[in-house]
Each structure stands twice: as structure tokens, then as C-alpha cells.
Nucleic acid binder design. Structure first.
Lengths: 341, 341
DNA sequence: CTGAAAGCGCTTACAG
DNA sequence: CTGAAAGCGCTTACAG
């Protein structure tokens, strides 16, 4: 590669000082209009670009945000949770709109990630995605918070969490989905997915589910809840387990779309008709849920909004503007698996 | 945030010079074992992390790779081409394995992206993804190449392209898919997707498709090819157009899975049975194709391999090791839409 | 409005 | 094996 142009080269060509070049390029009001134009023209001609490392080093900020995605280490290399992927898309764009670059990193649950980013001055702040298992991370989150690292997370939102959290209104989503099924006349519900505090998001969904049941005077049958993590296979296995239990059901809520989709496969392999014999709803509204057979009724998380909120909050945090946790609305998307559309 | 530790702080605490700290931290063989241990212990204690901006500035490389994803500006914010997403996953991991960070950026086709990355010394090299329309970018690619920028791209691989390109063996994939349908007894083929050099990847697939037809002595009916871009909607529209043509068909190849999936919807809405009346194959093997109704027979692109090759090639390029373009194998994945499994 | 100078926190010849 | 010094390419007080 040829010699890269520096601000000194431009200064020389323009007959001004290097300081003036620096100012002109950043549109400082201190610099004369004509000088600015001349400098910018020469910069363009020389294909000059400010050296980020130098400017970041000097000004002590990076102009980049780090996105840390957490995943189960068991997952196949190319199989990222589709929901995260759509968040990734909206976060990338939101960051770009705010003028930030995005550093993306997939973290295994075991790695010692906690200090790698902002401390290494690679990023001004961190976005954390995929902490289903919040409790496992609590300690690290607290440490991050103590260090004064700027970070926001997306996931379960609860009282007393360190840092700023955003998340979908999981409780209301679980409520909405279940209520919809009840209105369609279903009465015997099963739930596929973890329902305890080891997976706070699923738990909130489950609690919303239970609330709808209660309101309708329907029995909450704890034994019709089967644990599952958010994969098709886990949903499939959970559904098989459910069918072996002594538990009649005409409606099933999956704690996520992937679980619901795996569940549908198990039911269908078992000869159960969806939605006639079993109504199924999921949660997330990942793209796949349009295309399943039957298409999956689900709760949409507004990933676009969430991505924007996350980025905006983080940028505010970086600028020491106060920010508070909030919930993104959950929206029912009715398709055929619930027996309605 | 508290005062961040620098190498001088460590030097002071360890009673050595700052140069020695720097060396010790990078495991230089020049430094005494004991000194090294002491320095590293103190660094850990102070939660010290090398300032990337400073070290990059000094050593003139960044340790990061930039991934530029090109997309149609018409697409919805959260709807990234699922195929790219899976490439993204495997590239991120491959980069991490090689010790590089990954900067991700979505580019609109209109933007002046070409010099923004390596020139700004944000990245040592660039990975380009999503140039379906190679011809539109030729000029920019040439410019990048001339500048000596390190880059690799994934997409159509052709003679005389600037830089290093990787891609799926699209021709063979188109051939395989079509041959499979022929062996199942289909004789009247239609093709959904662009079939000219404005979209070189689809074109190669089409040519492979035609070769299989020729080999089998089947007629190539140019009028049964309908243009489409890689979205469900475009596939849907193309299929509707096809049905309005005076063109009988019992087998349809979609230039991509999204096209095939949209096509299936159109056929089914029109009352055609898949695969009984129309066999359908796609291309890409995106996750959705497992879950369509019927599940889609398709050609798998090995995204994991591709991601690894891309990163490895780019890293070699950065170290001035020669690298040449190559193709990733195409593999037939038989599911139900072809009427076989 | 402009310039000379300092300095961000490292790495790396150079000298010992 | 270690240290003193230079310098990567900027930004930003400071002085005019």
C-alpha cells in the first residue's frame, strides 16, 4: 500500500498548519470558510481519512459500540438464535444512524469477557444480548457496573438489577397469548419452557400465562409445564415429554417460537392436528414462524424499536445523560396455529 | 469511571521501566521470566488492559476485520437476508478464533462506503458480502484493489475480478438441483430468478440448471424464466407471473430459498399441490426452509466453511501471503417439496 | 481566525 | 535482559 496521507501532507499542500487542517476537517467554527473549503478539497483529492486510532487516542473515546452476544456453547456454529439476529440487524443500523461503529462478538458462557471491551478502549459502551440466565451473570454485571462501564442489556427486566435493562413486556405477552387462546374456547393449557428464576424471561411469560388462566377461572396445572430451552430440538423433546404425562391439553404455549415450532413437530408426528386438537402459540415472532405449518401465532417483540432504544440509551449513558430501564410492548400476531385466522 | 491504569502505573508498582512492562505483557522472549510474572500479576491486579488505540497507532495495525454487508435499501430494517445472517455468525466466530475483532456495517447500495474502513485505519482488512449485483460494484472494487486495501468478497466468482473472491459453486448447485428433479421424472421446468449478468450468482445457478436440462435432452424454455430478487414477495410475484404465462410446468427452481418460498405460497394459493403438481427446489438452505410446508428441497451453501475460508484468506492477505479465489461445494438437501422424501 | 506545542498510551529501534 | 527516548497521527489548550 502506498504512503497514507496524513494531516501534515494536507497542511503542506494547503499552506496552513496541521492544527488548522484538523479543525477544518471537523468543521470547527473557528476556521475560516475559505480555508475550510480548500482543506477539505485537498483532503478529498488525497483520499485522506482521519486515523481513528490517533484521534481516539487523543480524544479518549472510540466512536464504537460493542455488541456482546451470549449463546449456549452447545449450539452449532452457524445456528444463531434467529431472534438475536434480528436484533443484531436493528442495532447495527441504529448505531450507524448515531454515528457509531459496531463491534460484534459472540461470547461463550464460560469466557471471561467482562472486561475485554471498554477496558481495552475498543468501545465507548457495551450492549449485552442473550442473558437468558440472568442469575449466572449477576456478579459480572455488578462488576461492570462498579467499574463504571457504560452498558445496557436486553432481556429480563427486574427490580434491583445493576445497570440499565431493556426488554420485552414478557408478562403481558404471555398474558395476551393465553387470553387469546382462552377466548377461542381452549381450556386445558400446557406450557413448554422453563418456569423458574433460572430463566427470567420465560418465567415472566409463564406468569403472564398463569394470570390469564386465573382471570378466566381456569386451573393452573403445574404438572403440564415442561422445561425447555430455546431450540427446536428442546421444544420437540419437551412436547414429547408432555404427551407422555398424564395430562390432557388442547392448547400449548411455547416460551419461545423455537420451542413452539419443535413442539408442533412432536405433536404432528404423534398424529395430533394443529390447531384442531391442539392450539399452539409461540413467542418472539421470528421470521420462521411465518412459514411453519401451520403458521405460528405468536407474540411479536419489536426488535426494531428495541434496537433503537438500546443504542439511544447507551449513547445517552456515554454522555452521562440519565437513562432508565423500560419495556418494549408485546403484540399478538395471529396466524393459524391457534385455530383462528 | 476511575482513573484507568496505564503501563506506567504498572511500571511504577513493579519497579521496572515502562518498556519492560510493555514487553512483559506481550510475552516478549527478551524479558526475564520472573520480571514477566511480576508484571503480569500487577497488571491483573490493576485490571489493566492495553489501550488498543495507542498500540494500534504505534504498531500500525488494528487487529480488527470489517464486515461490510450490502443490502437492498428497500428492505425492512429488521429483515436481513437470512443467508447473510448465517454467514455473519460463522465469520464472527472464525475471526474470533484468529484473534481478530469484527466490525460490522450494513451498507446501503448508494453509500460511498469504499474507503471508509481500512483507510480510516479501523480495520486491517475488509470482508464484502452481498454483492449480488457485481457489475454495479466493479468500479469500486477496482479502486479498492488499486489502493492496496486488503479485501475478500463472497458471491459470484468469475475470471478477471479484482481482488480475491469466494463463493458457492452456484453452477454445480443449479445443476444438482435440476438433475434431481429430472431423475424424479419431472420434464417441464420453470426458473424463478434473474438469469443474466446483472445477477451473476443467479445466472450461474440458471446455467447449471440449463446444463442439467440439456444433458437430459429436455427443452430449455426461456419464456418460463421469470425474474425475481431474493425476497419472499418477489418470489411470490414471479410465480404469479409464471402462472399467467402460457407455460405448462411441473417443476420450478427458485434462484434462492426466499424466492422458492414465495413461489410455493403463490402456487398453493392458486390451488396447486406441492410436490404432486409442482416440484419446487430452492437454493441456500436457510433455516426457514426446514419449516416451510412442505419443507423445501434446496442446495446448501456451507456457510461455516465459507466463513472460515473468508477469514483465513483475509488474514493471509494481510500478512502478504498469496491467496486465490475458490469455490465452496454445493450440496443437495432433499426434503419434501421435490416429491421425494 | 491561525499556529506552535504538548500529549494521548503505547511499541520499538537503539544503546547498554 | 533492561531502560531512555522517539514517535505513531491526531486533538486541544494556549497564545496571539
Amino acid at each position: 500500500m502506498k504512503h497514507k496521507a496524513t494531516s501534515f501532507d494536507i497542511a503542506y499542500k494547503a499552506g496552513v498548519s496541521q492544527s488548522t487542517v484538523s479543525r477544518a476537517l471537523r468543521n470547527s467554527p473557528l476556521v475560516n470558510e475559505e480555508t475550510r473549503k480548500k482543506v477539505q478539497a485537498i483532503a478529498k483529492e488525497l483520499n485522506y481519512k482521519v486515523d481513528k486510532n490517533a484521534s481516539n487516542l487523543r480524544s479518549q473515546h472510540t466512536g464504537t459500540l460493542a455488541l456482546l452476544l451470549f449463546e449456549d456453547p452447545t449450539m452449532d456454529d452457524s445456528l444463531i438464535n434467529p431472534f438475536f439476529l434480528s436484533m443484531l440487524g436493528s442495532i447495527t443500523r441504529a448505531a450507524a444512524r448515531k454515528g457509531y461503529d459496531l463491534l460484534v462478538s459472540f461470547q461463550q458462557l464460560s469466557e471471561d469477557w467482562h472486561a475485554d471491551y471498554e477496558d481495552a478502549s475498543k468501545a465507548d459502551g457495551i450492549i449485552l444480548l442473550g442473558y437468558g440466565d440472568y442469575t449466572d451473570y449477576e456478579e459480572k454485571l455488578i462488576k461492570l457496573h462498579e467499574q463504571g462501564t457504560h452498558f445496557v442489556r436486553y432481556g429480563a427486566v427486574a427490580e434491583g438489577q445493576p445497570g440499565v435493562s431493556f426488554g420485552c413486556d414478557n408478562f403481558h405477552g404471555g398474558y395476551l397469548a393465553t387470553k387469546h387462546l382462552i377466548e377461542l374456547g381452549r381450556t386445558k393449557f400446557a406450557f413448554l419452557g422453563g418456569a423458574d428464576d433460572s430463566c427470567p424471561e420465560f418465567w415472566s411469560r409463564y406468569q403472564g400465562h398463569c394470570k390469564a388462566l386465573e382471570e378466566a377461572g381456569l386451573e393452573i396445572r403445574k404438572d403440564c409445564q415442561v422445561n425447555a430451552i430455546s431450540t427446536e430440538e428442546s421444544g420437540f423433546n419437551a412436547a414429547k415429554q408432555l404427551m407422555e404425562l398424564d395430562c390432557e391439553f388442547d392448547a400449548v404455549m411455547g416460551a419461545s417460537d423455537m420451542i413452539a415450532i419443535g413442539g408442533m413437530r412432536a405433536f404432528q408426528e404423534h398424529g395430533l392436528k394443529i390447531p384442531e386438537q391442539v392450539a399452539v402459540v409461540g413467542f418472539d415472532d421470528i421470521p420462521i414462524s411465518h412459514f411453519t405449518n401451520p403458521p405460528l401465532t405468536t407474540i411479536q417483540q419489536n426488535t426494531k424499536l428495541a434496537g433503537e432504544m438500546l443504542v439511544e440509551a447507551l449513547v445517552n449513558l456515554i454522555h452521562d445523560i440519565e437513562v432508565k430501564a423500560s419495556l418494549t410492548p408485546a403484540k399478538l400476531v395471529v396466524r393459524k396455529s391457534c385455530g383462528c385466522a
